[in-house]
Amino acid sequence: MKVTLDDVVFETRNKEYGAYYLRKNYRRYLTRATVMGTGLFCLLFGAALAFNKIQDANREKVTYVIVNPFDLPQDDPEPVVPEELPPPPLEESPPEMAEEKFLPPEPKKDEEVLVEEPPPPAEKLEKAIISNKTVEGAEAKDVFIPPAPTKEVAVVKMEPVAEDEIFMGVEQEAEFPGGLNELMKFLKKNVSYPAAAQRANISGKVILQFVVEKDGTVGQIKVLKSVGFGCDEEAVRVVKAMPRWSPGRQNGRAVRVYYTLPVSYTLQE
């Protein structure tokens, strides 16, 4: 009995262990796997080769011939003769129109000539009778009939303006001397930023409402939106120091009118 290397290695060990069995049968398994793989490869290769041969047998053989176009016989094209167009039809001359000759005027008798009466003089119109009815016995040329009124004129009665009434909006608004630009310049020049607001880093917009009286003076100042920290008081002080305004007007009369003015406080960065 031939002793192999596996028998020597596993002589003192349990030969029922899986490693001894695998090493003992390794060569046989390798040979079997090689034969089976080679056979399967040959089978697939032969099947593919047979499939290609069958396809080639069923495919029609096409022969391609390369032809040089210059080798082909060329026939000279026949010249194209333009077709002669028929001459246009002759236009018919317009029909001759009969000419009318100027006929000399025919003299008529004085009785047959219609004479238009001239308009009556102004003196006669002043003495004419004015009426809206036809007067029997009077000639139509001496009677003047005025046209009937087409539309009634409505008389609008102007309501009196109360002396102490304060208007929110009027026909002509109250105006600072010089206009809005001068008002902005006045505020920028006279409004001082309160120190308390600067220390607290406060900015905002104070909205005031006041009344412009009939003589242009400013009164009844109210703070509609407050900022605080002395900003409201400073804005009221500047408004009280304003010069006289141009008063608002309603129906051509000077009236009392409300005016709303925003005063902005912005910190310089």
Rank of each mutant, 00 (worst) to 15 (best):
K2S: 11
T4Y: 12
L5G: 07
L5S: 06
V9I: 15
K15S: 08
G18W: 12
G18D: 12
Y20A: 15
K24G: 01
N25V: 04
N25C: 03
Y29R: 13
R32W: 07
R32K: 11
R32N: 11
T34Q: 11
G37A: 14
G37L: 15
G37P: 00
G39H: 02
G39A: 10
L43V: 04
A47M: 08
L49N: 13
F51V: 03
Q55S: 06
R59G: 01
Y64Q: 09
V65T: 14
V67M: 06
N68M: 03
P69N: 09
F70A: 14
P73M: 05
P73T: 05
Q74I: 08
D75P: 00
D75N: 12
D76Q: 13
P77L: 11
E83K: 10
E84R: 09
E84A: 08
L85Q: 12
L90N: 08
A98Y: 10
E99Q: 15
F102A: 12
F102G: 10
E112S: 10
E117D: 09
P118R: 08
P120Y: 02
A122I: 07
E123Q: 05
K124F: 03
A128F: 03
I129P: 08
S131Y: 04
S131A: 15
T134F: 07
V135I: 15
K141F: 09
V143E: 05
V143T: 11
F144P: 01
P146K: 12
A148I: 08
A148M: 10
K151L: 09
V153L: 13
A162W: 01
A162D: 13
E165C: 02
G169M: 12
V170C: 11
A174Q: 07
E175A: 14
P177W: 07
P177A: 07
G179W: 02
L187A: 11
K188A: 14
K189E: 15
S192P: 00
A196I: 04
A197E: 06
A197R: 08
R199V: 13
I202V: 14
K205V: 15
K205R: 12
V206T: 01
I207Y: 01
L208A: 05
Q209R: 15
V212M: 01
E213M: 13
V218S: 02
I221Y: 00
K222Q: 14
V223S: 02
V223P: 00
L224E: 14
S226F: 04
G228H: 03
G228W: 01
G228S: 05
G230L: 04
C231I: 02
D232L: 03
D232T: 04
A235I: 01
V236G: 00
R237S: 11
V238P: 01
K240S: 05
R244L: 14
R244K: 15
W245A: 05
S246G: 08
R256S: 09
V257T: 14
P262S: 07
V263Q: 03
V263G: 05
V263W: 00
Y265T: 06
Q268M: 03
E269L: 08
